[in-house]
Computed example of a mutant assay.
Amino acid sequence: MTDIRGLILTPDGEIEEKWLPPTGHDLLNALYGAINCDAVEAVHLRRVGTMYMDEEGRAEEKLAMPNEYATIVVSGFNRVVYQMYMGTVVILGKPDSDGDDTSLSTAACTYIRTLVAHIKHNNVTVRDLRGRRF
């Protein structure tokens, strides 16, 4: 099997394209290493893929850095945000018919990079369900 393309997005807005093992424990270990965690949580991104983040990133003892970039990416794809996302995240393509992650499409990579550039230039804001800014 060939490796799959993903984007690593840090709380500082740095983006790195990374090729990861396609399935199983190798992919899971690669996610742990990229995110620097022991357990990942998956966030579905409509029509595009999955964003993986540190499952314990919001825990009081860990207090990962807020990732406004990841939060706005979720808003960009899902149109609604329920929480501020924390720490470094990895974004992969949508699952195939077997449920395995796939490469992030070129169009999705371009959209995410453009969105992050807009955020860095203060051209994007996100509000929660109650209309409050994050």
Rank of each mutant, 00 (worst) to 15 (best):
D3H: 09
G6F: 02
I8F: 00
E16M: 10
E17P: 04
E17A: 13
P21G: 05
G24I: 11
G24E: 13
H25A: 14
H25M: 14
L27A: 04
L28C: 08
A30S: 09
L31A: 12
Y32V: 09
Y32A: 07
G33I: 01
A34C: 14
C37Y: 02
C37S: 12
D38T: 15
A39E: 12
V40Y: 02
V40R: 01
A42P: 15
V43T: 12
L45F: 00
R46N: 08
V48S: 03
G49I: 01
G49D: 01
M51D: 01
M53E: 05
M53N: 04
E55T: 06
E56C: 11
R58A: 15
A59K: 13
A59L: 12
K62Q: 09
L63I: 07
A64C: 11
M65F: 09
E68Y: 14
A70P: 05
T71C: 02
T71L: 04
T71P: 05
I72M: 10
I72Y: 03
S75I: 03
G76Y: 01
F77D: 03
V81W: 01
V81L: 09
M84S: 11
Y85R: 06
M86H: 00
G87E: 01
T88F: 03
V89E: 06
I91D: 04
I91H: 03
L92A: 08
G93A: 12
G93N: 08
K94F: 01
P95E: 15
S97V: 09
G99Q: 07
D100N: 14
D100K: 11
S105A: 06
A107F: 00
A107W: 00
A108E: 02
T110Q: 13
T110A: 14
Y111K: 12
Y111H: 15
R113A: 03
T114K: 06
T114C: 00
T114Q: 06
L115H: 04
L115K: 07
H118G: 15
H118W: 10
I119V: 13
K120T: 02
K120V: 03
K120R: 10
N123F: 10
T125P: 05
R127P: 02
R127C: 07
F134T: 05
